[in-house]
Design a protein around this nucleic acid. Structure first.
Lengths: 141, 141
DNA sequence: TTTGCTATCTTTAGCGC
DNA sequence: GGCGCTAAAGATAGCAA
């Protein structure tokens, strides 16, 4: 039982990697929660994971998604957002910022838009199926 | 040496709380890093902290800041952003979104803007001195 | 596949400097 | 204030069912 000390390298075995991911994600969530409670601060972890894939959902969730996003960035009320889905977050941000950029070429978020669109588009538009949770929140790749 | 088991509650003693914060933040960063390496995923932690305050810096850092923000949200290249400053992140988002809202009352980010502005403004505009790091990144309150 | 177990490894609270 | 130490508490790899 737990003979080896951890070799800090990518776990090539699929099931072993997923098992470790699940255990360590749980532990990480607990750590984040404890740090928040003990020190009276807000904290969250963002984990971009290939797991927890779901069928696409394209319904309108902009309000929930953006609220979660900004609560995360501003560190407020994260405890209330546990496990909230952030499906299509990437797609939404991408579309919003492309729209902003299109209408405001000289607006100060123009570089943001371009950069975000570039970083999120990827080679094959895989941003359309992102999925996430807050505290600890995951983004489906 | 470590006689008590942790009482999961706010540590009222100032120096003890800060000491615990520092130790646990370090541990959390290590956990995040390990999870990322072992499972081949991108991850970051966002810690909103009252510590590490700095004199205000108002220079133009929008590009860096927004790049870090979106890399964080999209889970790309986080390893390259270790300890990058995100000074004035909150202020910038606030201003950007207020501007967007002002020009696009019916734009789909309008609710985002209002919510974000409300949540970040606070009672006394303290968002002007935010400071942050990525992986694990902190936001000065 | 998931759940439970636990020996072993890792983190960290409490101290002394 | 910070750093180093140590033992208790906590996390988890490997296995069983």
């Amino acid at each position: 039982m737990t003979r080896k000390k951890v070799k800090l390298a990518y776990i090539t075995n699929d099931s072993a990697r997923k098992a470790t991911f699940k255990k360590r994600k749980k532990g990480l969530m607990k750590k984040v929660s404890e740090l928040s409670t003990l020190c009276g601060i807000e904290a969250c972890a963002i984990i971009c994971s290939p797991y927890d894939a779901q069928p696409e959902r394209k319904d309108n969730r902009e309000k929930e998604v953006t609220q979660a996003m900004f609560q995360c960035l501003t560190g407020k009320s994260l405890q209330n957002l546990n496990l909230m889905d952030l499906n299509d977050l990437g797609w939404m941000i991408d579309q919003n910022l492309k729209e902003i950029n299109k209408r405001f070429g000289t607006f100060q978020t123009a570089t943001t838009s371009q950069m975000a669109a570039a970083s999120m588009a990827g080679p094959s538009g895989e941003h359309a199926s992102q999925r996430a949770e807050v505290q600890t929140f995951e983004v489906k790749k």
